[in-house]
Design a protein around this nucleic acid. Structure first.
Lengths: 230, 230
DNA sequence: AAAATTTTGCGTAAAATTAACGCATTTTAT
DNA sequence: ATAAAATGCGTTAATTTTACGCAAAATTTT
């Protein structure tokens, strides 16, 4: 079975969906890559992704391929750009819809049995297959822009976190240092954080306050036309 | 010649590029639509656009189709979303890369001979073919977001304009009223406007100052990491 | 032509926000 | 035990935003 069964009056490009998956280890941003098992670019590292089936949307494809290649399930991906240069792929004309997502590193361990999926720091990233370097670069830019206006950062942290952890995340993504006290004031004034545990009394104080992201409050504020900013 | 000459091992979707073209008549935002001459949706209004050829990028296709269908030449379009729902088109699986652009209405008149291309105000827009209503709606949202951070509005005005014209444009896009004096101060403080004509002396003063957008100055500021905001 | 209205330029003052930093105590690392 | 870093709770000055006044020039209406 190697027949060419799908025929059209005009040439059709193939369409793929690729994923840039971001994680955070407490210090720096991580990116999830897979090692290709077949030609072209065999053994090269690449973004997870694959061909869009005829009965699924690009987003559905991105999620399916992500699970197949890395074991990551139920991730909410969002498209950020479509790459349509004519010579992107040596095999045939391929247009790719690039997506990104933020995941908790803790949720990932163990998903990668058969597959060579691995997290890389930005500094460790090897040369990637196809034009995936370019795709990754744009994803990083969009992540920076996005985190300034929407509270997507919380998706990278554990459900409960300290203000310092949150600040480290923002500093890692934006490559900016904030004043600790001003950062905390700004975040708290937004009104989208809730204290997660009652503060301890008496003896042991001076333990960092734990917070949760309050999605309900954010949704309410957003509807009233409110905007995050950093 | 109606043969199916282009054959593949797996099914391939068709890919199109569509354009949301914005104009401004001094009072309200206009959108350029074309009337379809063939089925499906024959005689319905739709966004300019068409099938991506095998040797052109989506952006190149958008520009080509725009010229073919409306006579508009040399427009810089920018993609903003790819629509890939399975049932978008009754003929076959079609994925579309949606673009938008801002043009000066003055530059357009006369381009539309053979084609039924027409400008519509937001309130006049009829039900559109395919999912083009959805595409247009997202384009409007993106335009609002974008104009808050990048000086794209100048592309809609004549080269030389008054502060009041600029304010009217912002108010039309954002559906917000600004204080005239505060708006002018904010715009001038950005440092991206240049006075276009020397102000008249003596007798006739009190004629609105004319400005030009200073692209060079904006480029310089942007490189230093500066951000527009409204 | 006169009167009324709108547009334009040039401000000011109060309110709100941002930015820079102090300090004592507790926890963690050496 | 000692040094270094983290945490909570502020203050103050500079900057930015917001609301609005007023008179001259231009425009529209009567």
């Amino acid at each position: 079975m190697n027949e060419l069964n799908y025929c059209y009056k005009y040439p059709h490009p193939a369409v793929t969906a690729d994923c840039v998956i971001f994680g955070f280890d407490g210090v720096s941003i991580k990116i999830l890559l897979i090692q290709r098992g077949i030609e072209p670019y065999k053994n090269k590292w690449a973004l997870p992704g694959g061909f869009v089936c005829i009965d699924e949307s690009a987003e559905e494809c991105a999620r399916r391929e992500l699970e197949e290649e890395t074991g990551l399930k139920g991730v909410t991906v969002e498209q950020f750009h479509t790459f349509s240069d004519v010579e992107r792929d040596p095999r045939e004309r391929v247009i790719t819809v690039a997506h990104y997502a933020l995941v908790r590193l803790a949720d990932v361990v163990g998903g990668d049995d058969a597959n060579a999926a691995q997290w890389f720091s930005q500094t460790e990233i090897p040369a990637l297959a196809f034009d995936h370097d370019k795709i990754l670069q744009l994803a990083l830019e969009r992540l920076k822009e996005r985190i300034c206006f929407e509270p997507i950062g919380f998706e990278l942290l554990a459900e409960v976190f300290t203000m310092t952890e949150l600040q480290n995340l923002y500093e890692a993504i934006l490559s900016i240092k904030f004043d600790r006290r001003n950062f905390a004031n700004k975040m708290l004034k937004l009104g989208i954080l809730t204290e997660a545990e009652p503060r301890r009394e008496g003896t042991a104080r001076r333990i960092a306050t734990k917070y949760k992201f309050n999605a309900a409050k954010y949704a309410e504020l957003k509807q009233r036309g409110f905007r995050l900013e950093f």
